[in-house]
């Protein structure tokens, strides 16, 4: 199986604090690869460095056979690695469908002139719009398409973010705690969506806190603790790893095991 995302020795420190320490990951194509870890383990920092939001302090990132270490965020997105944010970051002055369309910006001509004259830009916008509507249909958001995004309940806003990430037809979808703040019904819906996307061949890097979700959808799991990778394997392997249990349960576990 080919590796689509190869992270080698990636580090990030803030002053003297090492938020991510020499983490290496190989994400195989077509899998749901999950990164888990206790609060403050450095998962979000890792994602921010991967997607060009923060500069790295060392190491390399290769994506789809290109080195993209410290490339600007929009270049990484255009290369096919697209992300969502932990607490949801949407454009509140835009409608749901407009939010989704922003995700396909790099697929359109970049000049102001093209926007004025129409032509190619107009034709391609129409295609993208119909794909966006299709996505909203799939994600159960079509009735909200023309509402301002802020008017939607939180769970639906998270889905809008996923739609915005998917509209550009990425190769890899990076989700930062997509289940945070969702109720159990919404988590179930999210699980179906994720499995459906994998069925269609999309690779997903899932950073998540909700163990129930991760254990049921992930093909492979990496565990981060204090900025370092302490374990990697299938859900079953990770679940049985004493280091992982210790990271999550702290010293209490060790004493119980002694």
């Amino acid at each position: 199986m080919t590796t689509i995302l190869a992270v080698d020795g990636l580090s990030k420190s803030f002053g003297g604090v090492h938020a991510v320490q020499s983490v290496s990951l190989a994400v195989p194509q077509g899998m749901i690869f999950s990164v888990i870890g206790p609060n403050g383990a450095g998962k979000t920092t890792l994602i921010n460095v991967l997607t060009g939001i923060l500069p790295s302090s060392g190491g390399t990132v290769r994506f789809a056979d290109r080195t993209i270490t410290d490339a600007p965020a929009h270049v990484i997105a255009a290369a096919g690695m697209v992300r969502t944010f932990q607490n949801g970051r949407l454009f509140h002055r835009l409608t749901v469908i407009e939010n989704v369309l922003v995700g396909a910006h790099h697929r359109l001509p970049q000049s102001v002139w093209s926007a004025i004259t129409g032509g190619v830009a107009a034709r391609r916008t129409a295609e993208i719009r119909s794909r966006a509507r299709g996505l909203l249909e799939t994600l159960g958001l079509i009735d909200d398409a023309d509402r301002l995004v802020g008017a939607l309940p939180y769970g639906r806003q998270r889905m809008v973010e996923i739609a915005r990430a998917l509209v550009s037809e990425p190769k890899l979808l990076l989700l930062d705690e997509p289940a945070a703040g969702l109720n159990s019904g919404e988590v179930e819906r999210l699980r179906e969506v994720l499995l459906g996307l994998r069925r269609d061949g999309l690779t997903i890097l899932l950073v998540e806190h909700n163990m129930g979700l991760v254990m049921r959808v992930a093909d492979r799991i990496a565990v981060i603790h204090f900025g370092e990778k302490i374990a990697e394997g299938t859900p079953a392997e990770v679940r049985g790893d004493p280091k992982v249990l210790e990271a999550y349960l702290g010293h209490g576990y060790r004493h119980a095991g002694d």
């Binding site: 965020a73 929009h74 997105a77 970051r89 922003v102 910006h105 790099h106 970049q110």
Partner: peptide, 12 residues
């Protein structure tokens, strides 16, 4: 509205 999210959505 959100500069970081805009960059992450492929906009320069």
């Amino acid at each position: 509205d959100d500069e970081i999210a805009t960059g992450a959505a492929s906009v320069g």
